[in-house]
């Protein structure tokens, strides 16, 4: 853990130095000043909000779906579901976002702004969640399921009391991957007018005020690292003690 904190601090320092040097240069050239940090803060909140909403929905869909297709009676559904989620993942995030706008227009919904982007992020983030939930559940030793059945557990009891506790760290790892990816992907939301940290990145490039681009990029990168570590912490907190002993 200490290593991670050191890593984040180092990253912050590096970015700070970069910002300071760049601002020195741009000021000397009389170009546009950097964004106020309050503004960056507001954009960060906007960014977080977008990702959190998308992830919450992706988790609500992806985790139960991944668990479901790992059950023997729904196992036949796993190839199409994983295949579909795989498509959402392998198409570039920019394309997923771009395609949402016409789809929303077709459905006579507001095709710009927040929601098309959120839906795109949901689709983009679903794959790691479904895949990990499926893998975690199906990798539980069949002997344990057999033992549970033989002792008189119902399928629901086996899922809740045996499979999920054992698979939980793999499931959360999927959420972690998905969220970290989406912190990055959400910067593209600006292309559809959804705001977030993509805004300073894009406007900085458009007006050659690279300092502003750097500010947005640094904030997004720092956010991704922090989110990754945070969910990593949740992951080890949720892992049952007996399994930690087994791993060590």
């Amino acid at each position: 853990m200490r290593r991670y904190i050191a890593f984040v601090v180092l990253l912050g320092l590096l970015l700070g130095v970069l910002v300071w040097v760049t601002s020195f240069v741009t000021e000397a050239q009389g170009l546009m000043n950097p964004l106020a940090w309050e503004e960056i803060y507001d954009l960060t909140i906007e960014h977080i909000q977008m990702v959190v909403v998308a992830e919450a929905i992706a988790i609500a869909i992806g985790v139960p779906l991944g668990i479901l297709i790992a059950l023997p009676q729904f196992r036949a559904l796993s190839p199409p579901v994983l295949g579909f989620a795989g498509v959402g993942q392998s198409v570039p995030s920019l394309a997923v976002i771009a395609i949402m706008s016409p789809i929303f227009a077709l459905l006579s919904l507001n095709s710009t702004g927040y929601w098309p982007v959120v839906v795109a992020l949901i689709i983009y983030g679903l794959m790691p969640i479904i895949r990990n939930a499926f893998a975690g559940m199906s990798n539980v030793d069949p002997a344990l399921i057999e033992a549970g059945r033989g002792m008189g557990m119902t399928q629901g009891q086996i899922i809740r009391q045996v499979q999920i506790p054992i698979a939980i760290s793999v499931i959360v790892a999927g959420i972690r991957t998905s969220t970290t990816l989406n912190v990055g992907a959400a910067t593209l939301g600006v292309l559809n007018g959804a705001g977030g940290l993509g805004e300073p990145i894009l406007s900085g490039m458009a007006t050659s005020t690279y300092l502003v681009t750097l500010q947005g990029g640094a904030a997004a990168a720092a956010l991704a690292v922090i989110v990754d570590r945070l969910i990593g912490g949740v992951e080890s907190w949720l892992t049952p003690k007996g399994l930690l002993v087994a791993q060590s």
Partner: peptide
């Protein structure tokens, strides 16, 4: 639940 069941792999729940 009323018949004891033991298997070769033991199948103790690790968590």
């Amino acid at each position: 639940r009323n018949i004891g069941y033991a298997i070769q792999q033991v199948g103790l729940f690790p968590h």
